[in-house]
Design a binder for these strands. Structure first.
Length: 580
RNA sequence: UGGCCCGUCGUCUAACGGCAGGACAUCAGCCUUUGGAGCUGAUUAUUCAGGUUCGAAUCCUGGCGGGCCAGCCA
């Protein structure tokens, strides 16, 4: 799409851009940037920002830069930088030639600082960090001027140059903007612009011993790159006046900062600190643990880039701090994978079924479509059948409740693509545990079609015991068991880790066609969910599957309703009894 | 109790002074060899009180509720 209005759903940022395009503020240009600090791995919250920035640029015919905001060498590492490049690419975005580093602007930034000093708008302060804090005042009281605030331009210039030259120890001096120590917005009470920090920078090495602060760096970087709309999260709202102040003092090109509400996802944590703690503390198996909502974690689990983008598109963007239900993420993967994941059969918790009237030595192959809703186009695979099969343990009930359409004594069900079968006998061990189901099949129902059109409600997935492939399956669920684990003041969020966030199904059996499942390939195990052959743990002929997400389960809902209804009836019965 | 920001169906989000719309959820029906998917229909919202206006979700004032800010982090 060329410049101008776009077809995407409206939001307040688009409205601002449209207004700019009407009044010609940026000459119709839209140039955005995604500015991560390379101090951690990207997560789903970053994905929202990435989709926003790259999406806006694409829709308005502009470009989006990838810029590393690397002004704090004590926290930043090449490892993080590499991972960010990989993750943004995986999400499907392309910054072309526009890969930048704030550290590339260190020389220019230094010159701008000199200009500020020359204009009497910045000074070198000898106060310690603690003293500066003490002078800042509080939310309700004004601050006090530093005794060094009145230094001459010449002295400030000299001192700042010597700061750069390495004449002073770390932390002994800072460069501060000279604004207003009584400003109601604390950000404007003479903010620090430069600090002395002898640290090796991942890109500039030991060239510098002074490093610029975010507020000074970000606006100038945006200006240098010709960014039009500098989109950031809500916590920078107070910083916008400083962003504008710096650019105004320097009288250089002035982008528009716009703030939006960051993503909050229920049953997850999003802060870099917490994510790091989960990894370092061994609560998860690394940054790419499939339970982590890092980009790498989701990728390992089996999420598609399209599903993540779909999610970001659907949740929208606004200034209201809201909590998104995990359902939206799950729904987005389901909708995406429903279109592209071939259907196969896998039994997670097997129970053996013997078809007593099926000849011992006989074997058949059924041609089963990969996409039953659109069979011819998408191909078939053969599914072998024999006398001994596995079905899902939960698909049989000896004494079923109402509306249970699955296998029960005497109740005919369909084995998908195979035959109609009826359970005749339940075999139990000494503990009363069911070990085997003995069934009969109707030879007239090959393929699962009844010649007399008799109604069979239930269709079950199954795997031939003789041909099935044993494959470990991991069932992933939300990492936390409460919606907002970080919200409890007196409890640590780690207390709310969900002990069942990963359940291994060691006995799972899948249809033999899956021996050829490529690492990273995704399938729908019919009636169970979407699964991905783990990209790392799967080997040739021996896939290991991750559950990405379950299917919608309306049977579970019915069961739930039945349970609630039963409880209600019981309560009423008790009431009447008490009255009588 | 300083400053800034935000309050629209259950949830997320539109409506830039002119019929409160969409998506998801929910409910009902259809369809179905996945209790999946799909199709059709239905229910559901402007935080409150004033003011301006022919007309207010929108503008103004105040209340209520929520968020952010006192790093030499970003």
């Amino acid at each position: 799409m060329a410049t101008g209005e776009s077809a995407s759903p409206s939001n307040f940022i688009r409205n601002i851009i449209d207004e700019h395009n009407r009044n010609g503020r940026f000459g119709g240009k839209v140039e955005t940037r995604f500015p991560p600090e390379p101090n951690g791995y990207l997560h789903i919250g970053h994905a929202k920002s990435i989709c926003l920035n790259f999406g806006l640029a694409a829709d308005y015919g502009g470009v989006c830069h990838l810029r590393f905001d690397d002004t704090n060498p004590t926290k930043e590492e090449q490892e993080y930088l590499d991972s960010i490049i990989e993750d943004v690419s995986w999400l499907g975005f392309d910054w072309g030639e526009h890969l930048y580093y704030a550290s590339n602007y260190f020389d220019q930034l230094y010159e701008f600082a000199l200009k500020l000093i020359e204009g009497g708008k910045a000074y070198v302060d000898d106060l310690s960090a603690e003293e500066i804090r003490a002078h800042r005042g509080t939310l309700t009281e004004p601050g006090k001027d530093s005794p060094y605030r009145g230094r001459s331009v010449e002295e400030n210039l000299d001192l700042f140059k010597r700061m750069k030259a390495g004449e002073f120890p770390d932390g002994s001096r800072v460069l501060r903007a000279k604004i207003d120590m009584a400003h109601p917005n604390l950000v404007m009470r003479d903010p620090t612009l430069y600090r002395i920090r002898r640290a090796v920078h991942h890109r500039t090495g030991d060239k510098w011993c002074i490093y610029p602060m975010y507020d000074f760096t970000h606006c100038i970087s945006d200006s240098i790159e010709g960014i039009t709309h500098s989109i950031c999260t809500l916590e920078f709202e107070d910083n916008r006046v400083l962003y504008d102040w710096v650019l105004d003092q320097l009288a250089i090109y002035h982008p528009q900062q716009i703030e939006f509400a960051r993503l909050n996802l229920e049953f997850a944590v999003m802060s870099k600190r917490k994510l790091l703690e989960l990894v370092k503390g061994g609560y998860v198996d690394g940054w790419d643990d499939p339970r982590m909502l890092t980009i790498r974690g989701m990728r390992r689990r089996g999420f598609t880039p399209e599903s993540v983008r779909l999610f970001c598109e659907r949740i929208g963007v606004g200034k209201k701090e809201s909590w998104i239900d995990m359902y939206w993420l799950e729904k987005a993967v389901r909708d995406d994978l429903n279109e592209k994941a071939p259907r196969v059969m896998g039994v997670l918790d097997p129970i053996k079924v013997v078809i007593t009237n099926y000849p011992e030595e006989m074997e058949e192959k059924f041609e089963a479509p990969y996409f039953p809703d659109n069979p011819p186009a998408m191909g078939y695979r053969d599914v072998p059948f024999c006398r001994e099969l596995y079905i899902e343990r939960e698909d049989f009930m000896e004494d079923p409740p109402k509306k249970f359409w699955r296998m029960a004594p005497g109740q005919e069900v369909r084995l998908r693509w195979a035959y109609l079968v009826t359970c005749r006998e339940v075999v139990k061990d000494d503990q009363g545990e069911i070990v085997e189901l003995r069934c009969t099949y109707d030879p007239e129902t090959r393929g699962g079609w009844a010649p007399d059109d008799r109604k069979v409600k239930g269709t079950l997935h199954w795997v031939s015991a003789r041909h099935g492939l044993k494959a470990p399956v991991r069932l992933y669920d939300r990492l936390f068991s409460v919606a907002n684990p970080g919200a409890f003041k007196d409890r640590d969020y780690k207390e709310f880790l969900n002990p069942e966030s990963m359940v291994l199904m060691p006995d799972a059996v899948v249809e033999p066609s899956l021996a050829g499942a490529a690492p990273g390939s995704r399938y729908q195990f019919e009636r169970k969910g979407f699964f991905c052959a783990d990209p790392l743990d799967s080997t040739e002929g021996a896939p290991v599957f991750n559950r990405i997400v379950t299917l919608r389960d309306s049977w579970a809902k019915i069961l739930d309703q039945q349970k609630r209804e039963a409880a209600r009836l019981e309560r009423e019965a008790r009431k009447t009894k008490n009255k009588g």
